[in-house]
Amino acid sequence: MGQEALTTVRPGSGEFFDAIAKRYDLLNRIISLGIDQGWRIKTVRALGLAPGMRVLDLATGTADLAIMTARRSAGVDVVGIDPSREMLAIGRTKVSKGGLDTRVTLLEGDAQQIAQPDDCFDAITIAFGIRNVPDRARALREMVRVGKPGARVAILELGEPRSGILGPLARFHVHVVVPTIGALLSGAKEYRYLQTSIAAFPEPETFAQQMRDAGMADVKVHPLTFGVCHLYTGRVPEGAR
């Protein structure tokens, strides 16, 4: 899919990410200066996983978080869901090369309408994907639906720091560095969407309240790297439905 095709699809959709799938991992490493892997480690740790548990990774993309979850959690199975076929194809190659075919399953799907039964996952994650979901409230309610009572939810998302001594530098990175590097490496001017979606994401406490409104309990906000990224954690309560 070329640059012309990108203009006909919704920014942030599965088709949008199909077009940049081959360079997505490289872009993540460069744009985040390699820090994104450390953020994912913190996300996995927040889940408190034990052998026999099942984890759902929404917006799994090329399966970085799904693979890390399986590697760092013995006896845990992961189901990754994403709307981009090209991202999933790359993810399946990575899963196979890592010898994780029996523990990591990747499926095409939508976070707003998860094709999984009620109460079937012990933990749910989504990294750098919730801002691309048109109806976030619906996606958050779906997480509550498919999570078992007590299931932990961990949402990793970028944001634009609005205060602090490093705020101006971080905003420069988001507004100038991210779209410039993205456009150069991906060959798509539409990669500027990443910058606009980060800037448009709600304030941390506003999004945390959206998680509570969807039915999650014990919601907490964990700023990472001077607020460039936040880890949001919560829990599916007993009698959530």
Rank of each mutant, 00 (worst) to 15 (best):
residue 1 M to P: 13
residue 6 L to N: 06
residue 12 G to V: 05
residue 14 G to L: 08
residue 15 E to S: 13
residue 22 K to F: 12
residue 26 L to S: 09
residue 27 L to A: 09
residue 30 I to K: 02
residue 30 I to S: 06
residue 34 G to C: 08
residue 35 I to S: 15
residue 38 G to H: 08
residue 38 G to C: 10
residue 41 I to G: 13
residue 46 A to K: 06
residue 47 L to H: 09
residue 70 A to N: 01
residue 76 V to E: 03
residue 77 D to F: 09
residue 82 D to P: 05
residue 85 R to E: 15
residue 85 R to Y: 11
residue 85 R to A: 15
residue 87 M to P: 08
residue 88 L to P: 01
residue 88 L to M: 08
residue 94 K to F: 07
residue 96 S to A: 15
residue 98 G to F: 04
residue 101 D to I: 10
residue 107 L to E: 14
residue 115 A to W: 04
residue 117 P to T: 07
residue 118 D to R: 13
residue 119 D to S: 13
residue 120 C to V: 08
residue 121 F to N: 09
residue 124 I to E: 08
residue 125 T to V: 10
residue 140 L to P: 06
residue 143 M to N: 02
residue 151 A to H: 02
residue 155 I to P: 03
residue 164 G to S: 02
residue 170 A to G: 03
residue 176 V to D: 01
residue 179 P to M: 03
residue 181 I to T: 11
residue 181 I to S: 03
residue 184 L to P: 07
residue 187 G to R: 03
residue 187 G to Q: 01
residue 190 E to F: 00
residue 190 E to I: 04
residue 192 R to H: 14
residue 192 R to A: 15
residue 193 Y to Q: 03
residue 196 T to M: 09
residue 198 I to T: 08
residue 200 A to R: 12
residue 202 P to R: 00
residue 203 E to T: 12
residue 205 E to T: 09
residue 209 Q to S: 10
residue 210 Q to A: 15
residue 213 D to Y: 02
residue 215 G to P: 07
residue 217 A to W: 05
residue 218 D to M: 10
residue 222 H to S: 10
residue 234 G to N: 05
residue 240 A to L: 12
